[in-house]
């Protein structure tokens, strides 16, 4: 999340239980409230689906990185043993592809893993020195924190959203936060 210059006003609702949170997310979205994001202490199953996020394409990225690894490994070994410095070992083929399988496999895994993790970190803006935007520090402990940006919900007044949150089981009075 990039910090913009204009402070934005958010309404923060705090839930105690994932089984209250999920119905609340569904109902708030059904009544037209745009939820900025929900912060949870652990991965809540299918929360991303209820929030309407698209399925992540990270697995595809991993496949592409892995395929690159496979290709590079085959090219590297073929070039080195087949063309750059062919060795005659008992008259056997220089290009002994079955022998290239282990290294090819390892490089496939290595590139797929590193590539996917790098993509994950970059796409989520994670990295050493990055600052987290915390609406409530307890969202890394035991609370489920829902942030609603007021500007993006013009059709509702702040009171109305607060009312909706209270109706759907927030455990504390919703508070305002400027970011």
């Amino acid at each position: 999340m990039a910090h913009s210059k204009e402070p934005k006003k958010f309404l923060v609702g705090i839930f105690d239980d994932e089984d209250v949170l999920i119905p609340a997310v569904k109902k708030l979205r059904a009544s037209g409230v745009k939820i900025h994001e929900v912060y949870t202490p652990y991965p809540v199953h299918d929360l991303d689906v209820y929030l309407g996020y698209k399925r992540s394409r990270l697995s595809k990225a991993a496949f592409i990185f892995g395929a690159t690894g496979t290709l590079l490994a085959i090219l590297m070994q073929s070039f080195m043993l087949g063309f750059s410095w062919p060795m005659n070992i008992g008259g056997k083929d220089h290009l002994a592809y079955p022998d290239f399988v282990p290294v090819t496999f390892e490089l496939t895994v290595l590139l797929a893993a590193l590539g996917m993790v790098a993509t994950f970190l970059i796409s989520n803006n994670l990295g050493p020195g990055k600052q987290a935007l915390m609406f409530d520090p307890r969202s890394t402990d035991d609370k489920f924190v829902m942030a609603i940006e007021l500007e993006k919900n013009h059709q509702f007044t702040q009171m109305q959203i607060e009312e909706l949150l209270l109706q759907h089981g927030v455990s504390e009075k919703p508070k305002e936060k400027e970011v």
């Binding site: 994001e37 929900v38 949870t40 809540v44 929360l47 890394t140």
Partner: peptide, 16 residues
């Protein structure tokens, strides 16, 4: 790494 525990990050984290 600036982890915030948002639903989007968690979903991708689980995929990873």
């Amino acid at each position: 790494f600036g982890w915030d525990g948002s639903a989007k990050t968690w979903a991708r984290y689980e995929m990873v």
